[in-house]
């Protein structure tokens, strides 16, 4: 069943240009948004979904990310059955959730649980941009908070892979308050010496970038990932000037001192393992 997830047609909802829309046979081939070449999907999957020609990091689903990060068979999911309500009775929200549930085979925009990385136990949360742009409403906030609390209770590290357009509009102020909710849990965890590693992947913006994503003990990101508070278009409209090409990329943030490292996907597990090893007293091998 898990395998079925990986063979699905990949959707690149956040890619803005019409030029790079998928116009190749479904599933078998994938067009790289980075260099426009046509790649065998199977080849792409073998290389952590990184284009071998140009190094473009194709978007990963949460199940793919977990498979790519954790030791095989070590993942134990938490709160999988938690789903959103419609607290504001927002028109069309329920239908949109159902559509994304079908599309992604997920109940919500984050998958949380526990697993091991080279034998080191860790709590983990992985956001999935295929589901409502990875946006954070009550469920995403609650699941992440519970994952932090799980890490706290078990005295293990907490790792998050973020991929989110920010707070979920359809839950209004409740979405905004999830930023505060995850923060109070992180503060408690941190005060007791908890290790928190944040890995920002494409895209990490708005309320997610302005809460847990930016306050890891370690802030990492994938190459070229879009990371920022405000949207590029809004900024351009506000300041009435063109922004540099690399504005709000991982490399831009690294240059401006906001990240510890930009890490190629092929090196991600190795690097996480290294950090966990150095903090070895926290996880039990």
């Amino acid at each position: 069943m898990l395998k079925d997830l990986f063979n699905k047609k990949k959707k690149y909802a956040t890619v803005p240009s019409d030029k790079i829309k998928q116009d190749v046979p479904e599933g078998i081939m994938t067009k790289c948004p980075g260099c426009k070449s046509i790649i065998y999907t199977k080849e792409l999957e073998k290389s952590h979904k990184v284009c071998v020609k140009c190094g473009y990091h194709h978007q990963m689903s949460a199940p793919e990310r977990l498979k790519n990060t954790l030791d095989q068979g070590s993942f134990r999911e938490l709160d999988a059955e938690m789903i959103s309500e419609n607290p504001l009775s927002f028109p069309g929200y329920v239908e949109r959730l159902e559509k994304d549930q079908k599309k992604s085979s997920l109940n919500e925009a984050v998958v949380t649980g526990e697993g091991t990385i080279d034998g080191y136990r860790t709590a983990i949360a992985v956001m999935d941009a295929r589901f409502r742009m990875g946006s954070m409403g009550s469920v995403v906030g609650e699941k992440i908070t519970r994952a932090i609390e799980h890490a706290h209770k078990e005295k293990i590290p907490f790792i998050i892979f973020t991929a989110s357009g920010g707070a979920r509009m359809q839950e209004g102020v409740l979405s905004l308050m999830q930023m505060a909710k995850s923060s109070v849990a992180l503060k408690r965890f941190s005060n007791d010496g908890g290790l928190f590693i944040s890995i920002m992947t494409h895209p990490t913006t708005g309320g997610v970038s302005a809460s847990f994503a930016s306050v890891g003990d370690f802030n990492f990101a994938e190459p070229k990932a879009l990371i920022g508070f405000a949207g590029r278009r809004i900024i351009e409209q506000t300041i009435r000037e063109d922004l540099p090409e690399d504005f709000q990329t991982a490399e831009f943030l690294l240059h401006h001192g906001q990240l510890d490292r930009v890490i190629h996907r092929a090196d991600m597990k190795k690097t996480l393992s290294q950090v966990l090893m150095i903090h070895g007293n926290r996880g039990e091998k």
């Binding site: 938690m82 789903i83 959103s84 309500e85 607290p87 409403g137 009550s138 469920v139 906030g141 609650e142 908070t145 839950e171 409740l174 308050m177 999830q178 505060a180 909710k181 923060s183 109070v184 849990a185």
Partner: peptide, 8 residues
């Protein structure tokens, strides 16, 4: 803050 949010 821990208790803000609605889910099922």
């Amino acid at each position: 803050y821990r208790n803000i949010g609605q889910y099922t």
